[in-house]
Each structure stands twice: as structure tokens, then as C-alpha cells.
Amino acid sequence: MQPRPQAETATDVRLLRIATDHLARFGPRRLTVTGVAEEAGMTHANVYRYYPSKADLIDAVAGQWLREVEDALADIVDGPDPVADKLERFVLAIARAYRDCAVDNPAIFDVYVSAVEASRGIARKHRGRQLRLLERILEEGIATDAFAPRDRERAMAFVIDAVQRFVNPVMVRIDVRVPATVLDQRLSTMLDVVLRALHAGWV
């Protein structure tokens, strides 16, 4: 197998655009590398030079969306807002990005859910990047005395556990028919508890 050319070439962008459209129209089962290749004006063998399998191509489509989510989260962490606001916006951004994708692009979201369930690379990398960004928020909160956790690892675990219903993609898919206003209200309540706990040093 030849090594994949460097990402973000014009061909990469074109293939991902076509594959994204096919995934939305046909779903992961009916999407074919041959169909993507035909629309791109190349042979399916040429597509395999960029993506060694159909699964790699589909994961690349989902990975493109996940990187957009990560970029938005990084902007929040790097912003000038008070750290408590950052934490709230960070969690809300994940919850809303996932819910919007589950509603508007269910095929892509289903690929992400299956990647989480199978612990595939795109899911592991995305979670790792999220955790590193969350850790930066907690470190900033400690440095500015906005948060006073008794144990940093327990504080991280507490935040994750508290908001799991709203940011776990499997749960997001289960709750997709629950009105967004109801979920936002519930999440707001949980975030209030989280911020109080971190400030008061309950964890």
C-alpha cells in the first residue's frame, strides 16, 4: 500500500467534499468508493491512494467535522472571558455541536457514534483533545483562584461525570427527540452545580 499523500491537498479537499455529500445522501452503508471516484473523475484505485479503505474515507469525513468542533473549543479556551464563563461555554459548545449534527447530519453523527463505540482513532483523538482543553480551563481556574479543587484529577472526573448525559455522543443520539430547550435547561442546572463545586472545593 502506498503511503497516503499529505492531508489538505486539493484532491483531499475535493474527495472529502464529495464523500461528505454522498454520506449525507446515501448513508455509510450505501456510500461507495467507486461512486465517490466517479464523481471526482478518477478511478477508485486512485482514491485508495488517499484513503486505504472505505472506512478510512468515512472516518475522514467525520474527522473533518470533529476538527471544526475542536477549533471552536480552542477559541473558547484561548479567549479573554473569565474562566467560569469559559467552562460553561466549553461544555455548551460541545453539547450543541453534537446535538446539531445529530439532527442536521445524522449520517456523519452516526459515524462518530460508531467510532466511539469501537474506540477508533478519530474518536480517541477527539476525546484526547477535548480533555487537554478542559484541563487547561481547570488549570487557569486554579491559577486565578476561581477554582479551588482538593484534587485535580477528581475535579476533572467530576466535571466529566456531571455533564456526561449532554456530551456523550451515544446519549446525545438517544436524546435527539428531547426538545433542545429542555436539555439546555437541564445542562444549565448541572453547570451551575459544577461551578459551585469547583469554586467551593467540594471535590
Results as ranks from 00 to 15, higher is better:
86 K>Q: 13
55 A>M: 07
62 A>Y: 09
178 V>K: 12
110 D>Y: 13
128 G>N: 12
4 R>I: 07
51 Y>V: 01
103 V>S: 11
137 I>N: 03
163 V>F: 10
14 R>M: 14
103 V>N: 06
152 R>W: 06
46 N>C: 02
189 T>P: 01
201 G>F: 03
15 L>H: 02
203 V>S: 02
122 I>R: 05
41 G>C: 00
140 E>G: 11
128 G>M: 08
203 V>L: 04
119 S>G: 07
61 V>D: 03
176 V>A: 05
99 R>E: 06
138 L>A: 10
30 R>M: 01
200 A>P: 01
16 L>E: 02
136 R>C: 14
92 L>E: 13
81 D>L: 14
161 D>E: 09
166 F>G: 08
191 L>E: 07
23 L>F: 12
115 A>N: 08
108 I>V: 13
63 G>S: 11
105 N>I: 11
123 A>C: 04
173 R>W: 05
5 P>S: 00
83 V>M: 09
1 M>T: 12
165 R>W: 03
148 A>C: 07
9 T>P: 10
88 E>Y: 02
189 T>I: 10
116 V>I: 11
76 I>D: 08
2 Q>D: 14
15 L>R: 00
160 I>L: 15
84 A>V: 06
109 F>W: 11
16 L>F: 02
28 P>E: 08
19 A>Y: 00
125 K>D: 13
44 H>F: 03
42 M>E: 06
174 I>K: 15
44 H>Q: 12
197 A>G: 09
96 R>D: 13
132 R>G: 10
61 V>A: 00
125 K>V: 13
200 A>H: 13
97 A>E: 14
51 Y>I: 03
81 D>C: 10
194 V>Q: 11
109 F>P: 09
39 E>N: 01
112 Y>S: 15
122 I>V: 11
111 V>M: 07
125 K>S: 09
71 D>G: 10
2 Q>V: 11
67 R>T: 02
156 M>D: 06
35 G>V: 01
38 E>C: 00
169 P>C: 02
17 R>Q: 04
139 E>F: 06
196 R>D: 15
21 D>F: 04
176 V>Q: 07
63 G>E: 07
61 V>I: 04
48 Y>C: 04
12 D>M: 00
101 C>F: 14
183 L>F: 04
141 G>V: 03
15 L>K: 01
88 E>S: 12
152 R>T: 13
126 H>F: 12
192 D>P: 08
164 Q>K: 12
173 R>F: 00
8 E>Y: 02
32 T>P: 01
1 M>Y: 07
35 G>T: 07
121 G>D: 11
186 R>L: 09
91 V>D: 00
113 V>Q: 04
144 T>H: 01
74 A>S: 13
12 D>A: 00
193 V>D: 12
92 L>G: 09
93 A>D: 05
54 K>D: 02
6 Q>V: 01
194 V>H: 07
161 D>Q: 11
11 T>N: 01
22 H>R: 09
93 A>N: 08
177 R>D: 14
